[in-house]
Design a protein around this nucleic acid. Structure first.
Lengths: 141, 141
DNA sequence: CGTTGAATAGTATTGATTATCATTACTGTT
DNA sequence: AACAGTAATGATAATCAATACTATTCAACG
């Protein structure tokens, strides 16, 4: 069950780390395929999953959309533009700031939290200001 | 574009409101099918979507899992058991308690936030206390 | 009645992800 | 170098949630 460093695994990691965006598995597949045309989509998924489990990369499971991957693993949250789908990093809101101590947890033991902020990125905020209709109406699903 | 109150639409809403759990569309489909065997899964999805848009029900898009639906629409958050998948209601953590004013939003205009807490439900917390391995290790995906 | 538009049932399709499996690649070890 | 054991790959099928499509049914109204 030990890990091996294959050409494809290394390439996936390299390309992911180059990107400041947060590509989906298929986006990354298209990118690595430019250098390794015979690579399989399953290989991309498999390696991303393994590296996420090993803490080498970060898997961002967005609600109602494909998972995205992040090459930088320092603690941070994400904000997603409801108009263009772009995902950006946010400095992490610390867990203790996020969870009031007087909260009623209905018996649960809290282990983690997942936050996703939604908003308009600078570009879209400008663009939508000039339009007549609400940008939120454009939002898919 | 006006709404009609069909038998199936009413039944879906009734059954959803009866449940304190937060069923997925297919779970609800199985339930309403007991009373209306010829109902179509598409109809369930369509009506849930419409009622969610109309604010009659609440759609909970969990990260990395199927969407769940909630018959009660008052503001609240959710906590999911990482062991058994059960979802329970939490009193809403107010947005201003959740978001520090000095946060850097990298130019975004924030519209909304989605929080999902993860933890162990009372039953699973007890059960896992007797086991030798960590319950978190059981966590899929 | 007959027409019209909305909703439905049934089914096909899409998209994301996971599983399967035969083949290939790597890692020691003689 | 030949070998055995194991891990990873490529190709493809399978699964699962969600949506799209289409012919049919339904409800309201003149």
């Amino acid at each position: 069950m030990q890990q091996r460093n294959t050409r494809q695994r290394q390439l996936i990691l390299d390309e992911l780390r180059k990107l400041t965006s947060h590509p989906t598995a298929t986006m990354l597949y298209d990118i690595v395929r430019r250098r390794l045309p015979r690579i399989s989509l399953g290989t991309v998924y498999r390696n991303l999953e393994q590296m996420a489990a090993a803490g080498m990369v970060r898997k961002i499971e967005t609600a109602g959309g494909p998972a995205r991957y992040d090459g930088s693993i320092h603690e941070h949250d994400h904000i997603r533009c409801v108009r263009c789908g772009r995902v950006d990093d946010l400095p992490a809101v610390p867990l203790d700031k996020m969870i009031p101590p007087d909260q009623d947890w209905v018996g649960y033991r809290v282990l983690d939290r997942r936050v996703e902020f939604l908003g308009l990125c600078p570009a879209c905020a400008n663009a939508s200001g000039e339009e007549t209709h609400s940008p939120v109406a454009d939002r898919k699903r």
